[in-house]
Design a protein around this nucleic acid. Structure first.
Lengths: 103, 103
DNA sequence: TGACATTATGTCAAATCTGATATATATTTT
DNA sequence: AAAATATATATCAGATTTGACATAATGTCA
């Protein structure tokens, strides 16, 4: 958002800022959130490419559909490690993972 | 280990195999262990480069020396996510992280 | 539209992870 | 070698994460 628009909005009483500012995320925390979001996207893409549903993908990854759905949404209750495990479970390689994380 | 030696040992009653076979780790689990071990090494290297002790590094990372030590050892009680957070806490960049993970 | 399939959300007990304290062991310095 | 510093290990209460179940919401298609 450019400075002019920001000032116009603030004049109208809006609180203007980025999501990370609002949530008060440090650069490190941001980096992790970024990686999680990138992984979530990659997981969905990978599953679709394999022609699986959340139900079948969950079975492959040996978990429930509900948790699998949360993983695909990078839900707050899901760790980076679980996301990576699921990605591997769908057949992703380390190379694919690194490419995804660098996004 | 070469085949000849393996057979000699087995003849003597030894059970011969790799660590991952013994622990029955899947390729995915192996990949995660690998990343953790690489991160542990990188953490130690980074801390030493900064001239910090575990006590001071733990303070920077806002945790205790004992937990910090466990992180450097990729202890079983430490998640990948915590290791990454600690790495960032010491000032590592995403680029550095990816380089480390690819090792 | 109504069945059926798929995905999303709420909840919770069990499992795992975390920070902290205590203490042991190892290394360095004097 | 003793003291001081640094690192390692054990333990545990509290916090977080996980898997599962129930159910709601959304999408698909005959």
């Amino acid at each position: 958002m450019d400075q002019a628009k920001k000032e116009r909005l603030q004049k109208k009483g809006w609180v203007v800022g980025d999501v990370d500012e609002f949530l008060e995320l440090s650069p490190a925390e941001m980096a992790i959130v970024e990686m999680k979001v990138a992984l979530a996207k990659a997981l969905i893409a990978k599953r679709k490419k394999l022609g699986e549903t959340q139900v079948s993908a969950a079975a492959i990854a040996k978990t429930s559909q509900s948790r699998y759905a949360k993983v695909e949404h990078a839900d707050a209750s899901v760790s980076l490690e679980l996301m990576i495990k699921m990605f591997f479970a769908l057949g992703a390689t380390k190379k694919e993972l690194l490419k995804t994380l660098s996004a």
